[in-house]
């Protein structure tokens, strides 16, 4: 089943040209999050404990570090896309909307960046202060 017009399918774009890209990115990131989040929940439940040494040793393993990096990156991106839709739906005036969208972008970049840096530090065995 397709909801696109025959002409739209031939031309390969909708009337909005680049519009569907954001919508599609939200779906693609959601598909990636299904295995990543389930892995994270199962991995935490399978640990013998949630104390510092156990969790840090677990995250220092290469596969766990890689999957945790991907989890945080994709989850931050997906949360950013979802938050953006909410701002676009409820903030109608141009200036507050622009300010809110910029703030969202910076906040998610800072949050995701800091977490990725933290996971990389653990993965590469940086000593704790």
């Amino acid at each position: 089943m397709t909801l696109r017009t025959p002409l739209g399918r031939v031309l390969g774009t909708g009337s909005a040209k680049e519009g569907p890209a954001t919508w599609r990115a939200e779906r693609v990131s959601s598909v990636a999050l299904i295995p990543l989040t389930l892995w994270f929940v199962a991995a935490l439940l399978a640990l013998p404990g949630l104390d510092y040494a156990t969790v840090r040793g677990w995250l220092a393993q290469p596969w766990n570090g890689l999957l945790a990096l991907m989890l945080v990156a994709v989850m931050t991106y997906h949360a950013y896309l979802g938050s953006r839709v909410i701002v676009e739906d409820y903030v109608h005036r141009a200036a507050p909307k622009l300010a809110a969208l910029l703030l969202l972008r910076f906040a998610y970049a800072a949050l995701g960046g800091a977490s990725l840096f933290a996971i990389l530090r653990i993965a590469f065995g940086s000593s704790t202060p």
Binding site: Y52, V55, R56, L59, A68, V72, M75, T76, A79, L111, G112, A114, S115, F117, A118, I119, R121, I122, S126, T128, P129
Partner: peptide, 13 residues
Amino acid sequence: LVALCYWFISLAA
């Protein structure tokens, strides 16, 4: 997600 990131950062710190 903010809480999860805080947890990862606290683990590295």
